[in-house]
Write a protein that binds this DNA or RNA. Structure first.
Length: 818
RNA sequence: GCCGGGAUGGCGGAACUGGCAGACGCGCGGGACUCAAAAUCCCGUGAGCUUCGGCUCGUGCGGGUUCGACCCCCGCUCCCGGCACCA
C-alpha cells in the first residue's frame, strides 16, 4: 500500500542532487525582480562538531530562509565561521596542533554536518574570520576607527585572566570570573587598546526604540548595560589641601543631607590625602584587597568597611565641614570614584554611618504625619517627599525638584546637571596569538603609527611558540615584530597584541554581501541592497556582547558614510537553549546529547521537526522530555513523516477519486494557518496544523475519497521544515519535474477558508449548556431563536427567569438569570 | 535588592481581539493484525460524581471588574534568566 519512509536513503540522495543543481545561491543580478531577503544566523564558533544548540538555531533560521525563497524572495542565506579565538590556541598548547589546522579541521566537520542537516546555505559566500583576506579588512576597519579617534591606547586597570594569560573586556567577566574558563579574574594596570563605544552610548540607547522586533529581555539587558542615569556633578573642596573633588549624584536634592564623604580606595587622590591625614597605614590593607579583586566585582567587600582619611571636605551648598573616608563600597569604575554620603536617604550610606557613628540628617520628609528621625531611623528613605533643612529649597517636593536644584548649582558655579553611563570603553587588546594582529607600529620617534593600508594584512606568523607564560607568542617571536617605521623609516616594533574576536564578529554580516571583494571590506551598493538584515537568528547569550558591538560598528560605518542605515538587525529572534533533564548540557554532568548521531539514526528532517515542534522557538527545549527517554524509540515526527508518505502515496494511487469539499476547505485553512504561523515564527503550531491535515487526509482516503490537492499542498507546506521529505514527496511521489524548494508557496482562497457553519455555544449564566452547529451567517435573532430551542438550555432554564440575553452571533448566546 | 520572562492534564505544549480550556504530539490503557514480537492501524485518556441523560470542580495563590476571565486590574507565592554596593 505505502512505501516505508527511509530517511537514510532519501536524504543523502537529495543532498547530492541539490548540490549538483546549485540551489540556494543568492542572486546579485540588479535586474532580478524579486524582493531581497537577508536571512542571517549567528555564525558558529568552530570548536568540535555541531551541538544541539546549533541544530535548534539553524533549523529555525533555515525554515525562515526556505519559506522566504518559496514566497518569491531572492534570499541571501550565508554561512561562515567565527574562527579566531582562545580554544584553538589552547588546543595547540595541549596537543601540539597548529591553531589553524585545528580550526580548519573543525570547520570542515561542521560544514559537512550543516550539509547533512539540509541547510540551504549559499556556500559560495562562506567566510572564515581567520582567513588573511578577511582579517585584512578587520585591520582596515581598525585603522579607520584609529583615524577617527575611536581606537585609542590608554593605561588603565583591566581584567586579567591568569589562566588564559590575557586581558578581558568587562563584558567577558561574569561575576568576577573569566567568561571562557571560569578562572578568578585579577586586576592589572596595563596599557591597552580601546574602542570608544562610550561616544555612542546615547545613540545606542535611543535607537533601541526602533528595534520593536527584538525580544524584550535583550533590549532590557542592553539598556541596563548602557546604564544611563541622569543627575549632577558637584564639586567638594578638601579643607586641608584646597583640592576640588567631584562627585556624581542622581539625587542633588539631598545635598543638604550630606554628612560625610567617601572615596573609592582606588581613587587617585586617596593616597596623598591619607598621607596628609596620617592614616596611610590603615588604608593600605583595603588597597591591597581591592587590587586582588576584579575590575567589575567587589563582592568580597562589606558595605561597612572603610577608613577615615584624617581630612575633611566642605559641602558647597552649606559650607559644612564633613569627614572623608575611603571605602571599598565606592567603585572607581563608576561616576567619579567618590561620593557624597547621604545616610538618611541611601541604604549603603546609612549602613556605613551606623558602623562609624556618623550623623544622619533627614532632608526629605515623606509626608505630613510620618516624620523621619535621623538618629533613630533604621531604614534609609529614598521615596518622594518634602525637602527640609535644605536652605533655599525648604518646602519643595523631592525628587521633582532635582532639575531646579541642578540649575541652581550651575548658576552658583558649584556643579552642573549631567548624564552618567555605566558603559565603559571596549577593551580590545588580547595578549594571545590566534587573532587579528593590531595593525599599529610603535616608533620611538613617531609614536603610534598606522600600518599603511597597502601593507595589510599584517599576517600572523606560522611559526609562533604557543607555550604560556612570560610574553605573548607574538612578542616572543624572534623576528615578527621588528619593522621599519612607515613614517620615518627608523627601527620600530609592531604592536604584538591581537584583537578581541568580537571585533571580527562585529562586521562579518557586511562581508557576506560582497564575498571576495578586494577593494574594501564590502561594496557599498551590495550592502545597501541586502541590508539591513531581514531576520537575525541566534542565542540570547549574545544579548550584550556581539549585538551591542555590532550595533556600534554599524553606527560608526554609517558615520563614515559607508552604510545608509544605523541598525544592522531590525528583527532578532532568539532560540531557546536545548537542555537535558532540567539542566544545561555539560560533559561533567554527562548529559550531553549530540545532534549528528541522531541525524544518522532518524534523519535530519526528524531532528529538525522534533526541535521546531517541541514548543515556541524562543523557549528552552528539554531533550529528555521531547526527545524521549529511550533513544531507540521512534520520535513522533518520524512517525508523522511516515504517515505523510503513506497518505500521499495513497492519494496518488487513487488520484481519480473525488476530493471532498471538507478536505479542500481544510487545505485552504491549513495553508492560511501555516503561512501566518511562519510569519510569526510559530513553528510548533504550524507543524501541528500540518499534522491535522495529514490525519484528515487519512480519514478521507479510508472513506474512499481523493486527496491529491491536499497531498500537493502538504508537500509544499512541509518543505521549509523537512526539506528532504518534502522533496521526495514532491518529485518522486507526486512526479513533479522541478524541486519543491523552487515551487511557489501555495495560496489560499479566503472564500474557502470561511466556514459555512460554526459552533454556537449556548450558555446559562456563563456556563456552557449546549453547542449547536449553525450557519456561519446566522443573525442575532436567528441565533437567539436557535439557542432557545437547545435542549440543554431548556433544562438549565427550567423555572428560572431570563433577565438578559447576550447574543454574539454566530458564536455565542448567554442567558442571564441572576 | 533591581530589571525581564514565566507558572495550563502523567509530559511538551495549544487556546489569535475577554466567548466550547486542554488543539497537535508524547506517554499510558484497550483492541485489530501476528505463532509471537516489532512496526502499522483503530478506540479511549483533566479530576470527582452519575439514575449514563448528565452534574460538579478545574489554567500557581487571594481578591476584583464583567453576562462571561488562562486572557484585564490589585495584592501575593514560587520558578527561570540577566545585572548586582551603579551613588
Amino acid at each position: 500500500m505505502s512505501r516505508r519512509y527511509d530517511a537514510s536513503e532519501i536524504e543523502p540522495r537529495w543532498q547530492r542532487i541539490w548540490e549538483e543543481e546549485g540551489r540556494y545561491a543568492a542572486s546579485d543580478d540588479p535586474d532580478d525582480p524579486r524582493p531581497r531577503f537577508y536571512a542571517l544566523d549567528m555564525f558558529p564558533y568552530p570548536s568540535g562538531d555541531l551541538h544541539m544548540g546549533h541544530a535548534e538555531a539553524f533549523s529555525g533560521g533555515d525554515t525562515v530562509a526556505r519559506y522566504k525563497t518559496m514566497t518569491g524572495h531572492n534570499v541571501l542565506h550565508p554561512i561562515g565561521w567565527d574562527a579566531f579565538g582562545l580554544p584553538a590556541e589552547n588546543a595547540a598548547i595541549k596537543r601540539g596542533v597548529p591553531p589553524r589546522a585545528w580550526t580548519e579541521e573543525n570547520i570542515e566537520h561542521q560544514a559537512a554536518s550543516f550539509r547533512r542537516m539540509g541547510m540551504s546555505f549559499d556556500w559560495s559566500r562562506r567566510l572564515e574570520t581567520c582567513d588573511p583576506e578577511y582579517y585584512r579588512w578587520t585591520q582596515w576597519l581598525f585603522l579607520r576607527f584609529f583615524e577617527r579617534g575611536l581606537a585609542y591606547r590608554k593605561s588603565s586597570p583591566v581584567n586579567w585572566c591568569p589562566n588564559d594569560h590575557t586581558v578581558l573586556a568587562n563584558e567577558q567577566v561574569i561575576q568576577g570570573a573569566c567568561e571562557r574558563c571560569g578562572a578568578r579574574v585579577e586586576r592589572r594596570d596595563l596599557t591597552q587598546w580601546f574602542f570608544k563605544i562610550t561616544d555612542y552610548a546615547q545613540r545606542l540607547l535611543d535607537d533601541m526604540d526602533t528595534l520593536i522586533d527584538w525580544p524584550e529581555r535583550v533590549l532590557t539587558m542592553q539598556r541596563n548595560w548602557i546604564g544611563r542615569s541622569e543627575g549632577a556633578r558637584v564639586s567638594f573642596t578638601i579643607e586641608e589641601t584646597g583640592e576640588q573633588i567631584e562627585v556624581f549624584t542622581t539625587r542633588p536634592d539631598t545635598l543638604w543631607g550630606v554628612t560625610f564623604f567617601v572615596f573609592s580606595v582606588e581613587h587617585p587622590a586617596v593616597r596623598d590625602l591619607a598621607a596628609r591625614g596620617g592614616t596611610l597605614a590603615a588604608l593600605e590593607p583595603l588597597v591591597q584587597e581591592a587590587r586582588a579583586a576584579s575590575m567589575t566585582s567587589h563582592e568580597e567587600a562589606d558595605t561597612k568597611d572603610g577608613v577615615f582619611l584624617g581630612v575633611h571636605a566642605i559641602n558647597p551648598v552649606n559650607g559644612e565641614r564633613i569627614p572623608c573616608y575611603a571605602a571599598p563600597y565606592v567603585l572607581m569604575g563608576y561616576g567619579t570614584g567618590a561620593i557624597m554620603a547621604v545616610p538618611a536617604h541611601d541604604e549603603r550610606d546609612l549602613a556605613f554611618a551606623r558602623q562609624h557613628d556618623l550623623p544622619v540628617r533627614v532632608v526629605i520628609q515623606p509626608a505630613v504625619g510620618e516624620l523621619l528621625d535621623g538618629p533613630t531611623m533604621t531604614e534609609a528613605y529614598s521615596g518622594e517627599g518634602v525637602m527640609v533643612n535644605s536652605g533655599p529649597f525648604d518646602g519643595e517636593s523631592a525628587p521633582a525638584s532635582i532639575a531646579k536644584v541642578a540649575a541652581w548649582l550651575e548658576s552658583e558655579g558649584r556643579g552642573r546637571a549631567t548624564v552618567n553611563y555605566r558603559l565603559r570603553d571596549w577593551l580590545l587588546s588580547r595578549q594571545r596569538y590566534w587573532g587579528a594582529p593590531i595593525p599599529i607600529i610603535h616608533c620611538p620617534t613617531c609614536g603610534e603609527v598606522a600600518v599603511p593600508d597597502e601593507d595589510l594584512p599584517v599576517r600572523l606568523p606560522d611559526d609562533a611558540d604557543f607555550e604560556l607564560g612570560g610574553e605573548s607568542p607574538l612578542a616572543r617571536h624572534p623576528t615578527w615584530k621588528h619593522v621599519a617605521c612607515p613614517d620615518c623609516g627608523g627601527e620600530a616594533e609592531r604592536d604584538t597584541d591581537t584583537m578581541d574576536t568580537f571585533v571580527d564578529s562585529s562586521w562579518y554580516f557586511f562581508r557576506y554581501c560582497s564575498p571576495g571583494y578586494e577593494d574594501g571590506p564590502f561594496r557599498a551598493q551590495d550592502v545597501a541592497r541586502w541590508m539591513p538584515v531581514g531576520q537575525y537568528t541566534g542565542g540570547v547569550e549574545h544579548a550584550i556582547l556581539h549585538l551591542l558591538y555590532s550595533r556600534f560598528f554599524t553606527k560608526v560605518l554609517h558615520d563614515m558614510e559607508l552604510v545608509p542605515f544605523t541598525e544592522p538587525f531590525p528583527k532578532l529572534m532568539n532560540q531557546g537553549q536545548v537542555i537535558y533533564g532540567g539542566a544545561s548540557m555539560s560533559k561533567s554532568k554527562g548529559n550531553v546529547v549530540e545532534p549528528m548521531p541522531l541525524v544518522a539514526r532518524w534523519g535530519a528532517d526528524t531532528i529538525r521537526l522534533t526541535m521546531l515542534f517541541a514548543g515556541p522557538f524562543e523557549d528552552d527545549i528539554d531533550w529528555k522530555l521531547v526527545g524521549g527517554e529511550d533513544e531507540h524509540r521512534r520520535p513522533g515526527p518520524h512517525a508523522w513523516l511516515g504517515r505523510a508518505f503513506s497518505v500521499v502515496a495513497d492519494a496518488v494511487e487513487h488520484d481519480e477519486a473525488i476530493e471532498p469539499p471538507q478536505l479542500v476547505k481544510l487545505v485552504h485553512r491549513t495553508v492560511k494557518g501555516v503561512t501566518e504561523d511562519l510569519e510569526r515564527f510559530r513553528f510548533n503550531t504550524a507543524i501541528s496544523k500540518m499534522q491535522v491535515l495529514t490525519n484528515e487526509m487519512r480519514a478521507t482516503l479510508d472513506g474512499g475519497g481523493g486527496a491529491m490537492a491536499a497531498a500537493r499542498a502538504l508537500a509544499q507546506l512541509l518543505a521549509p521544515f523537512a526539506p528532504y521529505a518534502a522533496e521526495e514527496l514532491w518529485r518522486v511521489e507526486l512526479g513533479e519535474p522541478d524541486s519543491v524548494h523552487a515551487s511557489t508557496w501555495p495560496t489560499y482562497d479566503p472564500a474557502l477558508v470561511r466556514a459555512d457553519t460554526v459552533t454556537l455555544v449556548v450558555q446559562v449564566d456563563g456556563k456552557v449548556r449546549a453547542t449547536l452547529e449553525v450557519p456561519a451567517d446566522i443573525d442575532e435573532a436567528g441565533a437567539l431563536e436557535t439557542a432557545r430551542g437547545a435542549e440543554g438550555a431548556l433544562r438549565a432554564l427550567d423555572r428560572r427567569t431570563v433577565l438578559k440575553e447576550i447574543v454574539r452571533a454566530p458564536r455565542l448566546v448567554n442567558f442571564v438569570t441572576k
